[in-house]
Design a protein around this nucleic acid. Structure first.
Lengths: 150, 150
DNA sequence: TAAACTGTTGCAACTGGGTTTCATGAGGAA
DNA sequence: TTCCTCATGAAACCCAGTTGCAACAGTTTA
């Protein structure tokens, strides 16, 4: 579902070590999961995947590593309209921002890139003199399939 | 700080009762607070204000009423980039959607309306055949004052 | 205007995602 | 290899929000 990435694998590891952070076994495991994820994962899903590789890994380490990645702008945190409780979802930061559309009926998440979105952010930076570090556009509604199904 | 509203006071009460919901003392109290709020309030702030009017009101009632308002699209729930924990903030749904910009340094929240935003949503409805019920664009970064301060 | 119906409230207990504390363990520079 | 420091795991904790249930109060009806 996520928009294809063109970044080289190992990018997150390189980014962390270039910032002087230790590349522990646990971090490598978590980074590889986030990097190769085919959908948006929450912390407990990441933990489950990580334990298949390193059974001793603790959920605290997952939370700490995600926090680290977020702080350095290497992953984006999503709410996906809080459709399944208050958990957060993560995806590695794409080259170009995209919009998340959550179908409130079937739960499917779609992604969408748009020049208008890029231009809107440009307008905000200019008109509001606001330096954008992270942006999050989430939309809730009904997808095409659910609209026509009813 | 919020963009001025032109809706008549009592709008929320009317909207609820027209849907066949009971107008209890507690609900009237909470609605009036949400309707007249000058900033974005979280649930505990709404509770605190409500207790000045009706000291017996319970926090559960606040949560339930906010959920109700959200379900009927009468208020919007905001994360404001989770700058202060995981709490949610509420504002009554405006006539025209706006963007929330959160300064990650000083914590100030700014609002911004934009034709580009309206057009972007139109594009999504058309190109993705996605029926939008609620949208949330939140931006984190540095405001003009904090940019020039450093 | 009183009864009755049913949605709403308050209370207490609970849930669950996420964080803190601290002793132990392991990167990695020298 | 040593040593320093950061990172980890385990347990306890935090806190926003939810649930179950008995008592209560809007609203409708007669």
């Amino acid at each position: 579902m996520p928009i294809p990435h063109t970044e080289a694998p190992g990018h997150l590891q390189a980014a962390l070590s270039s910032r002087g952070l230790r590349l522990t076994h646990q971090r490598r495991t978590i980074l590889s999961i986030v990097e190769t994820a085919k959908q948006h994962l929450d912390a407990s899903q990441i933990l489950r995947h990580a334990r298949k590789i390193d059974p001793g890994i603790d959920r605290v380490t997952v939370y700490r590593t995600l926090k680290l990645l977020k702080r350095y702008g290497l992953v984006d945190e999503l709410d996906l309209m809080h459709m399944q409780g208050e958990k957060h979802f993560y995806e590695r930061r794409p080259l170009r921002d995209h919009i998340h559309m959550a179908c409130l009926r079937c739960g499917k998440i779609a992604e969408f890139e748009s020049d208008l979105f890029d231009r809107l952010k440009g307008q905000i930076q200019r008109d509001c003199q606001f330096h954008i570090l992270v942006s999050r556009l989430e939309i809730g509604g009904y997808c095409a399939a659910c609209r026509s199904a009813n």
